[in-house]
Nucleic acid binder design. Structure first.
Length: 493
RNA sequence: GGCGCCGUGCCCAAGUGGUUAAGGGAAGGGUCUGCAAAACCCUCAUUCAGCAGUUCGAAUCUGCUCGGCGCCUCCA
């Protein structure tokens, strides 16, 4: 296999460039995770999925990967008048609006939504990171870092908290282009906080002895600022300089800008050598919003009968740097293609064909996998990578019956493609457990209808069997006959 | 006001200087099947928003026009 170069767009240098690792063959990668104040929505996962694809691609290249992605379980503030200076804590707000539903306190709320997030993550077949640190478990490191920044003259204490002095960092603004001069010219209305040296200064620590989550610090009771958690956790697990840092495009400023300022003034070394940002998605051509009714969580879509892998497929079908319009039609298209991979696996598990020369078959599949990996190395060109994988699926399905040699070749292809893209699911042993509840139609479970239809078919009473099919169909389910019997699936809305 | 993205067949979409403009969906035809589904085969852009220019050569580069969108201290 020729040595491949893994290229990714780098926000800092504004160009596609090779992803290099400080330690040869070992990628150290940090991804900003969600604040767990509600269910994560498909937009959250649209931005996490490319990180998963970076990890998969790096592994396919034979690299070792250490991937850290955090969970922000202490809320940052809702008001943006002045950098982190005011507003309401997002998690406290969520607790108040949802109090009495499930949660007795804010820690329960964080725990509940953390678990929901982890379930969605796993449903979408995302790679497990090596560490998934939580902000509340690293407050000590955040305090230590804040103290050091005060000592170095990069931060100062006021009656309301500790702030980072952006004037002490000449490079502030290098990622987003929001340099200190430009920030002064910002046209937005801002409320000046007299406690701060300049409005662009952001909080490292907020003094607040009323906050629902508070810790004791050298500055009294309070809680850490939003940006400092990622600096502290990235350093704790990956060291002073990491190879790659990713997040949604909104993270670029202020979050990542502030992380860079904190980390680089603290260590005196580069924080991350490569920056990746994912564009926000739209839904049915509009910004996703609860108000417009186009707001989806992963569990919403699964509830509606969509395959979680189809959701994954749809969300990665367009490269991460392009505007992406998520549509239900696109999701249906995705579902059909995921089914196609499933059909490939069925045939691989049950080879029936006569043996013959399989060398061309092998050569084609090896080439297609290689082209798929090439595409991923070109700034994660998932459109092309998926197209190559699908060509492989068609190559497999074209063989009327696979002999054992071809089945083995096909199995290797499907396994490798699944490792790279995660959309060609190797069937787990005897299904995934969790039997789906049988729907009841006109007072009878669907299994009874299937049995009655089978009897009608045996009696050649096709009018009756078709009537049953229609009845089940009207109830929203589809029957599918196969040599092994009849199965049912929920029809998609 | 600043920064940036996009406009390719009925729909989604890859391609960013040079052989036949990927792939998926839909649609039409066919094979198979009691029906349905699945699967396979065939058909489906002389053309890339418009105009002007650079070039031997442009969907790809430059300029302008029209249209859609994102970010700029809540947000993935």
């Amino acid at each position: 296999m020729p040595d491949r170069v893994f290229k990714l767009y780098d926000t800092m240098s504004r160009q596609v460039k090779e992803l290099r690792t400080v330690e040869p063959g070992h990628l150290k990668f940090y991804t900003c995770g969600p604040t767990v104040y509600s269910y994560a929505h498909i937009g959250n996962f649209r931005s996490f999925l490319p990180a998963d694809l970076v990890v998969r691609t790096a592994k396919a290249l034979g690299w070792r990967v250490t991937w850290v992605t955090n969970i922000t379980d202490v809320g940052h503030l809702t008001e943006d008048d002045v950098a982190d200076a005011g507003g309401e804590d997002r998690m406290e707000k969520a607790l108040r609006s949802k109090e009495g539903e499930h949660f007795s306190n804010i820690w329960d709320l964080a725990e509940y939504y953390t678990n929901a997030y982890l379930k969605d993550w796993s449903d979408l077949n995302m790679t497990e990171p090596h560490v998934r640190p939580r902000a509340t478990q690293h407050v000590r490191e955040q305090i230590t870092m804040t103290e050091a920044l005060i000592d170095k003259g990069n931060a100062y204490e006021t009656p309301t908290g500790v702030y980072f002095d952006v004037n002490s960092d000449n490079e502030y603004g290098k990622l987003s282009g929001n340099t200190r001069d430009k920030l002064k010219e910002a046209v937005r209305e801002v409320v000046l906080d007299d406690n701060k040296r300049q409005q662009a200064d952001f909080a490292l620590w907020k003094k607040d002895d009323k906050h629902l989550m508070q810790w004791f610090s050298p500055w009294g009771w309070g809680f850490p600022g939003w940006h400092i958690e990622c600096s502290a956790m990235a350093r704790a697990y990956l060291g002073d300089t990491i190879d790659l840092h990713s997040g949604g495009e909104d993270n670029m400023f202020p979050h990542h800008e502030c992380e860079i300022a904190q980390s680089e003034t603290f260590t005196g070394k580069p924080f991350s050598n490569h920056w990746m940002h994912v564009r926000f998605l739209q839904v049915e051509g509009e910004k996703m919003a609860k108000r417009t009714g186009n707001f989806y969580t992963v569990r919403d879509l699964i509830e509606q009968g969509y395959d979680p892998l189809a959701v994954r497929y749809a969300l990665i079908s367009v490269p991460y740097g392009k505007p992406f319009n998520f549509t239900l039609q696109g999701l249906k298209d995705a579902q059909g293609n995921v089914e196609r991979f499933r059909e490939c696996w069925r045939r691989v598990e049950d080879p029936t064909g006569a043996s013959g020369d399989s060398s061309a078959f092998k050569r084609d599949l090896e080439r297609l996998y290689s082209e798929s990996l090439d595409a991923m190395c070109e700034d994660l060109n998932t459109s092309v990578a998926i197209a190559k994988a699908l060509e492989g699926a068609k190559t497999i399905l074209r063989e009327q019956g696979l002999d054992s040699a071809r089945a083995s070749i096909a199995r290797e292809f499907l396994t490798k493609v699944d490792g790279l893209l995660g959309i060609s699911p190797q069937p787990r042993s005897k299904d995934t457990g969790e039997p789906t509840a049988s729907p009841v139609i006109d007072g009878k479970p669907i299994e009874v209808w299937i049995e009655e239809r089978a009897s009608a078919k045996r009696a050649k009473d096709f009018a009756q069997s078709d009537a049953i099919r229609d009845k089940v169909s009207e109830a929203g389910y589809e029957l599918r006959d196969s040599p092994e019997g009849t199965t049912w699936t929920k029809k998609l809305g």
